[in-house]
Every structure is written in structure tokens, then in C-alpha cells.
């Protein structure tokens, strides 16, 4: 059994540190809340001007948005800090991490837990609840299981995206924005109806980075909506398989990246 005490101590200290600067923390919380609200507004502005888009009406897309945003913000809470890896690489401060007796990836993840992202998760929860109330959900044990499965796999899939991006940074360094296209572009894609995508987008965000599996496909299965042509019935149940694939991709990229790293020359 692995001893988790050091991780718990590190995480507790991060939480305390953020709550120390109260004014800044409150400003952070409200900014994050606003980020979530503006993202919801972007979806709303498009869907209010049409009856339905790609088989989703406003009620259904709110549900898709809620699922995607809740999963993304919880993954971001724990793994979002991977984004700062290029800064460590450029400054050469990553080498310090090698001196500590903890695995590199776990240190990177625990080096910051952004509590402010809880505010964004709150927007996701609110949209999810509103979405479930607005739609005619055929409630059953199966429906609950599908939702729980979607949230858990969604968090895992988005978390894998952050780890994949961090692994790719070892090669890109200055080109960090290329991975943002898929991490944050992926979040944007996850709240869209995948049925409107062109074939290249289906390949990239439907399967290679399985963003459609985090929210859109489970909702189509849950509400029994007409899905896109390429979707067999019940594909929404395959969200865990998508998460496993995403993690396989992420860990392979991370390991290759770490092997490639030659040190900061400090």
C-alpha cells in the first residue's frame, strides 16, 4: 500500500495558502464564476436564435453544457496546473522536482490545487440540474447509472488531456498554444452537438481526443435523441472506454516526454 501522508500534507498546505489572501481569493472565485457564466452565455446566444441545432434544442444543449463543464472544471481543479510546465521548462526549475522523492507527475499535479475552480464547477452543476429539469428525462436506475458514468469518465478524459498536453510540452516548449487547441478547444468542442462536425473534426474530437464521449453522446443516449450518422445506438455507454483510451494516450506521451527531457542545464 502506498503511503499517502506526504501528499495529504502537501495538498492541505496548498488549500491553506489560497485561503490566506482572502480578498484575492474572493476575486478569484468570482472571476471563475464569471468564466463559467460567459461560456454558458456563448452557447445560449447561438441556440436562442434557432429552434434546434444538430438535433439539440436549447434545453438539451444546457444539459450537454452542464455535463461537459462540470467534468472539465473538476479535472481542471486537480490537473490544470500541468499547464505551467513550459514555464518550469524555460526557467529550468523543473530540475528541482527531480530531487524530491515523489513521482514527477504527482508532484506537478499537487503543486497547485486551484480552489477557485470550484466556482466554475458550481456553474456546471447548476446547468446540469437545470438541464435535467428542462428535459423530459426517462428516469430509471439505468439513466442514473449513465449520468454517473458520464461524469466520472468525463473527469478522467479531461484530466488525461492535461497530462497529454504536459507530455507534449517537453518537445514544444514555446509552442504550448498548439496543445491548448486540443485541451481548451476540446472543452469548447465537448459542449457542442457533435452531429454538426465535419469529418476531420469527428476524427479529432470524436475519437482521437474523445470529447464527444464526455457529454454529447451520453445525453443523446439518455434522451433517446436522433444521433449523428456515425453513431451506433447506445454509444453513450462507451464513455469509460474513451477515458481508458485517453489515459493510454496521455501516459504514453508523458513517458516519452520525460525520457526526452535533458535537464535545464542549471
Amino acid at each position: 500500500m502506498v503511503d499517502l501522508t506526504p501528499y495529504r500534507a502537501v495538498l492541505a498546505s496548498r488549500v491553506r495558502a489560497q485561503r490566506t489572501y482572502r480578498a484575492n481569493f474572493l476575486l478569484d472565485l468570482s472571476s471563475s464564476l464569471l468564466v463559467g457564466l460567459v461560456e454558458l452565455a456563448e452557447v445560449w446566444v447561438v441556440f436562442r436564435s434557432v429552434d434546434s441545432l444538430g438535433g439539440l434544442d436549447l434545453a438539451a444543449v444546457v444539459l450537454v453544457f452542464g455535463l461537459a463543464d462540470l467534468s472539465f472544471s473538476l479535472a481542471d481543479l486537480a490537473f490544470g496546473h500541468c499547464d505551467t510546465l513550459p514555464t518550469y521548462l524555460r526557467a529550468g526549475t523543473l530540475d528541482v522536482f527531480y530531487l524530491r522523492p515523489q513521482p514527477l507527475l504527482l508532484q506537478l499535479i499537487t503543486s497547485d490545487i486551484s480552489l477557485r475552480r470550484l466556482a466554475r464547477a458550481a456553474v456546471g452543476v447548476a446547468a446540469l440540474v437545470a438541464g435535467l429539469a428542462m428535459n423530459d428525462v426517462p428516469w430509471s436506475a439505468g439513466a442514473v447509472a449513465l449520468l454517473v458514468l458520464a461524469v466520472v469518465s468525463g473527469i478522467a478524459t479531461f484530466a488525461a488531456m492535461f497530462v497529454w498536453a504536459a507530455g507534449a510540452q517537453f518537445y514544444l516548449v514555446d509552442g504550448a498554444e498548439a496543445t491548448n487547441a486540443f485541451v481548451y478547444g476540446g472543452r469548447y468542442a465537448a459542449s457542442q452537438p457533435a452531429s454538426v462536425w465535419s469529418r476531420p473534426l469527428v476524427v479529432v474530437f470524436g475519437f482521437f481526443f474523445p470529447m464527444a464521449f464526455t457529454a454529447y453522446l451520453p445525453v443523446v443516449t439518455l434522451l433517446g435523441l436522433p444521433g449523428p450518422d456515425w453513431m451506433p445506438d447506445g454509444l453513450g455507454w462507451c464513455a469509460p472506454l474513451a477515458a481508458i483510451w485517453a489515459w493510454a494516450l496521455a501516459l504514453t506521451t508523458w513517458r516519452t516526454g520525460v525520457r526526452h527531457y535533458q535537464g535545464g542545464g542549471g
Binding site: 441545432l53 478547444g185 469548447y188 468542442a189 457542442q192 454538426v196 462536425w197 465535419s198 473534426l201 479529432v204
Partner: peptide, 9 residues
Amino acid sequence: TFGLLKVAL
């Protein structure tokens, strides 16, 4: 990438 997603929607 973002452009193509915007085009689709």
C-alpha cells in the same frame, strides 16, 4: 482548430 469548430457550429 477553433476556427473549424466555429465553422461547424
